[in-house]
């Protein structure tokens, strides 16, 4: 067991205070403020990060529980100079307004497309088995853990569909 955590490929020591959430660890200790705190209770999705390939709410987990884990935050997905396809699509489709929920939306969507590729079903899936499709209703259900108060959902769905269809 290691006592370090990998964030976007860089190893970091875990915090001393076990109360520190993974969210506060990346924001406060590492200065990676792209991951947002919207509610601190797993109710908004703004803090979504990808841990070992799986999306989770970083506010509802302690940093010390993640020794040896590989975490990807929004900063690990792309930069202004080299944005990811989803990041570009969010800009092109205006998939945000104030921008505060946006890193969480994009981390969530990145992992979500992989979940569909893995044929994981959702509450919106007609059938639990077989191939899962990237329909509007599937995206809407699977992205419902990321609130957007500006009301950019319609554009968020369009941005994700665009990327999913490009890569299909």
């Amino acid at each position: 067991m290691s006592d370090t955590i990998s964030i976007n490929g860089t190893q970091h020591s875990l915090p001393d205070d076990p109360r520190r959430s993974l969210l506060d660890f990346v924001r406060q200790d590492l200065g990676l403020t792209g991951t947002k705190k919207g509610c601190d209770h797993g109710q908004c999705g703004a803090c979504t990060v990808i841990v070992n390939g799986i999306r989770i709410n970083s506010c509802l987990t302690l940093a010390v529980m993640h020794d040896g884990d590989e975490v990807t935050t929004i900063e690990g997905l792309g930069t202004p100079e080299a944005p990811s396809e989803l990041q570009k699509a969010f800009v092109a489709h205006d998939g945000f307004q104030c921008g505060y929920c946006t890193p969480g939306q994009i981390c969530s969507a990145t992992a979500m497309l992989q979940e569909i590729a893995n044929n994981w079903p959702s509450d919106a899936s007609e059938s639990l088995e077989g191939e899962m499709n990237v329909t509007g209703e599937e995206i809407r259900e699977r992205m419902s853990g990321n609130l957007c108060r500006c009301g950019a959902y319609a554009n968020i769905v369009a941005a994700i569909r665009d990327v999913a269809e490009e890569s299909a």
């Binding site: 797993g42 999705g45 999306r55 709410n57 969530s108 079903p121 959702s122 699977r142 419902s144 853990g145």
Partner: peptide
């Protein structure tokens, strides 16, 4: 699948 969100269920 009807409960919570994908992030929480994960």
């Amino acid at each position: 699948l009807s409960g919570a969100t994908q992030q929480l269920r994960n």
